[in-house]
């Protein structure tokens, strides 16, 4: 075993890359849950985004178009969930699971012809001078645009939820939909918009896996990333900054275990690759042992205006 082969600077830089898909999906899901909707279909939307982004990226040769298509694809499948849960008042847990199973099937079908292809390369945002700085350069200034987009999104969501009128309405709908309805807010419309936003973010996250992180299409590519994003929202107690923290912690664990695998640690590979999931469970236990702080009041309940 040779631990000195692990370079801490590269580790942090690759941690950010590993965390980005989960961060995107988790910040989107957080907004959805803030609106009072529990969408368990993150995994399904992510993998749909992954395959759509990859297909469009390969066919057009432009990763940017791939990402746009992935966001649209994720939003489109999220609307299936939206219509079912908001208009047809179906059970959110069951429908979310259905969306995941549906997305896995859909992506496998679309992705079949693309197996084994290589994706176009997403250029890094090489900022002159800054990215050549020692230590800080590769960590802060040597990434591709989507990494920065995900960070900007965290800031926007934090600001939007906390200070904007729209954010206030969204939180009101999520905390108590009857009261929000009585005040004249369109509960279902707000929720549908939140669900579409969550779908677009999950789609982007999925495309980041297929276009940048891996970069290839294989069936079942996301391998539970969507579920981990859901766990991170709980870990974060529905706060944007802690979503960022959670996603980067998780990215750190998964990069570290890959590095340890490569360094030839005496632990078998299988035990290292299960470690991110085990650690997620352990973290969830710690968080829930302190009680569920910050869960929106109407989370997971259907809204039906009677009368």
């Amino acid at each position: 075993m040779d631990l000195s082969s692990i370079n801490p600077i590269l580790l942090i830089a690759s941690l950010m890359v590993a965390a980005t898909p989960i961060l995107l999906a988790a910040i989107g899901e957080m907004v959805v849950e803030k609106a009072g909707v529990l969408n368990l279909g993150v995994e399904g939307m992510m993998i749909t985004g992954a395959v759509v982004g990859f297909a469009i990226g390969v066919n057009t040769g432009s990763p940017a178009l791939g990402f746009i298509a992935a966001a649209l694809g994720g939003a489109a499948v999220s609307m299936l969930f939206g219509v079912l849960t908001q208009y047809l008042l179906s059970n959110q847990v069951a429908t979310g699971l259905g969306l995941t199973l549906f997305g896995l099937g859909l992506s496998a079908l679309i992705g079949k012809p693309y197996e084994g292809m290589k994706s176009p390369v997403l250029q890094k945002l090489d900022i002159p001078v800054l990215s050549d700085l020692p230590v800080v350069g590769p960590i802060l200034f040597g990434h591709d645009p989507v990494v920065y987009l995900s960070l900007i999104l965290v800031v926007l969501v934090w600001y939007g939820l906390k200070f904007s009128r729209a954010g206030l309405i969204l939180r009101a709908v999520g905390e108590n939909h009857e009261a929000a309805h009585a005040l004249g807010y369109k509960v279902i419309r707000v929720r549908l918009m939140a669900i579409a936003f969550g779908g677009a973010c999950a789609g982007l996250g999925g495309a980041y896996i297929s276009l940048v992180r891996v970069p290839q299409w294989v069936e079942g590519l996301t391998a539970g990333a969507g579920w981990i994003a859901l766990a991170i929202v709980v870990f974060a107690s529905w706060r944007p900054w802690r979503v960022l923290l959670g996603a980067y912690l998780f990215g750190g664990v998964s990069v570290l275990q890959l590095n340890l695998q490569a360094a030839g640690l005496a632990i078998p590979v299988e035990y290292l690759s299960m470690s991110p999931y085990v650690i997620t469970i352990v973290v969830l236990v710690f968080i829930s042992a302190r009680g569920q702080h910050g869960a929106p009041g109407s989370l997971g309940r259907s809204f039906h205006a009677s009368g």
Binding site: L84, L97, L101, F102, L104, G105, L106, L109
Partner: peptide, 9 residues
């Protein structure tokens, strides 16, 4: 697989 997912929907 897609067919089965559709059925649930």
């Amino acid at each position: 697989q897609l067919f089965q997912g559709m059925l649930l929907f």
